[in-house]
């Protein structure tokens, strides 16, 4: 059914820390690895070793440059996957009922055996979270690793999405954003987590933690590393003087 269920109490989602992400793409690789081998059709690649490689990914990392009025530019790595919106426009536009939002935990999924690959859900998503797989002809999207998080065959520490489990920087957090007391909700409250494109009215569950202001006095060791001798002495001094005497040399 493509009618959205009433808002669930449990809202599983991700909190992504833009201050911590180093842009290593480990989450991209882990996501593609897990989701190619598990839930649904594999994520295909087109022309992977050719001139124009392209492929289906459920998670992509952009990089943006913020240039303040004065001071150095800052580079922000920006992971982007499905935000499991409360008011998910991708679900209601689906003509077949293949797209749905789970009533129990709010995860947005695609029933691939009912998907006709019309692409309308991808058009309706402002975040580019859905990609039609060219080999399978059906829509693929982040499942929040629904086949890991409830999987009792896995050790408990692995029952989180593959991207969260693999992130070496600890920039990705998984939890219940519907529970104000959960670790992720407290993190969002402390760090001022934000919605992406709030004006689109999608009410995303996933939250982004903005980069923290950088220290202005970055280089505390610099004074200790100042050059000891401004003018060369001894052999180097003799060399400098001699070379300077040559015609055409810099004085």
């Amino acid at each position: 059914m493509t009618q959205l269920p009433p808002p669930s109490d449990v809202k599983l989602g991700l909190v992504i820390d833009l201050d911590t992400c180093v842009g290593c793409h480990a989450c991209v690789t882990a996501c593609k690895g897990w989701n190619t081998e598990n839930y649904g059709a594999p994520l295909s690649d087109t022309d992977p070793y050719g001139a124009e490689p392209s492929g289906t990914f459920l998670n992509r990392i952009h990089s943006y440059e913020v240039q303040p009025e004065d001071g150095a530019a800052q580079l922000v790595h920006f992971p982007k996957s499905c935000l499991h919106c409360e008011d998910a426009p991708c679900v209601t536009v689906c003509p077949t009922g293949a797209s749905y939002k789970r009533a129990e935990d709010g995860i947005v999924l695609v029933n691939e055996s009912a998907c006709i690959g019309c692409g309308l859900c991808a058009w309706a998503c402002p975040y580019g979270a859905r990609e039609k797989d060219p080999a399978e002809g059906v829509m693929k999207k982040c499942t929040l690793c629904v086949d890991r998080i409830y999987n009792e065959n896995l050790p408990e520490e692995d029952r989180v999405p593959a991207c969260v489990r693999t992130c070496p920087a600890g920039a990705r957090h998984f939890g219940d954003l519907g529970d104000p007391g959960s670790d992720v909700s407290r993190l969002v409250a402390e760090r001022g987590g934000i919605d992406l494109m709030p004006e689109q009215g999608t009410k995303p569950v996933n939250q982004y933690l903005p980069p923290r202001p950088k220290d202005t006095d970055l280089d505390v060791l610099a004074p200790l590393l100042a050059p000891v001798a401004e003018t060369p002495q001894g052999f180097l001094g003799w060399l400098d003087k001699t070379l300077s005497k040559l015609p055409g040399s810099a004085q």
């Binding site: 833009l18 943006y64 913020v66 240039q67 303040p68 009025e69 530019a73 800052q74 922000v76 920006f78 402002p126 934000i194 919605d195 992406l196 494109m197 709030p198 004006e199 982004y208 903005p210 980069p211 202001p213």
Partner: peptide, 9 residues
């Protein structure tokens, strides 16, 4: 608004 990033161009 897409990235929530502020503080410069």
């Amino acid at each position: 608004t897409a990235t929530g990033l502020t503080g410069g161009a």
